[in-house]
Computed example of a mutant assay.
Amino acid sequence: MVAINTFLSLLAVVSTAAAQTNTTLRYMPFGDSITEIICWRSKLWNRLQTTEWASVDFVGSGKGENNCRDTKYDRDNEGHSGFLAINIANQRQLVGWLQRNPADVITMHLGTNDIVQQSRTVNDIIAAFTTLVSQMRAHNPRIKIVVAQIIPLGMGNFNSRVQQLNAAIPPWAAQQNKTESPIWVVDQYTGFSGTGDNRDGVHPNDAGDTKMMNKWYPAIIQAFQAAKADKIADITAA
């Protein structure tokens, strides 16, 4: 009887460990330089360390510049300085990135370069977003998606077009939303100063990074909760 009880105890430990491994979430921060070379990711990772989400695995093909004076945080991300949403979509770059680094949850802050570098229309950018969401769901039909209404700029006369893009995002997201793959929209524009919260007119300074992290956080937690529920359901079904 003792031997059987010992075996059952060991089996329970192994099962618990397997369940924990299978429910580890993979999160991809996806975007341009405002994802790659900034510090909101560091601030987000550190905030998660005091929560049940401390084990979430940040994923992506790049590390980004370590200019945050933080040697501990998970630097993996899929931010690409200078990249356009339209080009990423049309060239199917995200398809390869997700194949190499599968994700359960993805955040997307894109469109700045499309507006500043190429003066692409809002309709073209939104069409690219639709393609990107399709590519995400082809990779993982239950992927949880968090999309930003992008931060303002502190240079040039671009903010009217930024506002036009941001106004188009919520109705677009509502059309694209799916029960199994929901989209959360995060307003990164409101309350963010293009001059006071950016270090160079484009990229957030420390105050801007904090504001971005605080805006991302509630939606990301909801996405994590939904993704974890999927994984637990899969384990239960098995």
Rank of each mutant, 00 (worst) to 15 (best):
A19Q: 09
L44Q: 00
R161D: 15
E36M: 15
A223R: 07
P171S: 12
N5G: 10
D209N: 11
I183A: 02
I106W: 04
V56N: 02
V105G: 04
L84K: 03
S181V: 05
Q117P: 07
K63W: 12
S81K: 13
N101I: 06
R120D: 08
M212S: 08
S61F: 07
N157Y: 13
S193D: 15
D57W: 01
G82P: 06
W216F: 13
S119Y: 07
T130L: 14
E36H: 15
Q164R: 15
F7S: 09
R75I: 05
T179Q: 00
T71G: 05
T236N: 10
Y217A: 13
L98W: 03
A18Y: 04
D70L: 05
D76G: 06
W45Q: 02
V14E: 05
N198D: 10
N77D: 04
A227W: 05
R92K: 12
Q163T: 15
R199I: 14
S119G: 02
D187Y: 07
C68S: 02
A174Y: 00
I220F: 01
D230F: 00
Y73A: 08
T24P: 04
L11Q: 06
G79K: 14
Q175W: 05
K43H: 08
I125C: 14
P171D: 10
F224W: 06
A238R: 03
D32G: 05
Q118H: 11
L98M: 08
S81P: 12
D114Q: 07
L98N: 03
H203N: 15
A85Q: 09
L94S: 12
I88A: 00
Q225D: 01
D124H: 00
N166A: 13
T190K: 08
E52S: 14
R100H: 09
R26P: 05
R26F: 04
D74M: 03
S181W: 00
D76R: 00
E65A: 15
D197V: 14
A89Q: 09
R41Y: 00
G191Q: 14
S61H: 04
G60M: 08
R47H: 13
P204E: 12
W40K: 06
K211V: 15
I125H: 13
N77G: 03
D104E: 02
P182D: 04
V133C: 00
N87C: 07
D200N: 10
L165R: 14
I34R: 10
G201C: 09
F224L: 01
V133S: 02
G208Q: 14
P218Q: 13
Q164L: 15
T131Y: 11
N67Q: 14
F158I: 11
N157W: 13
M108D: 08
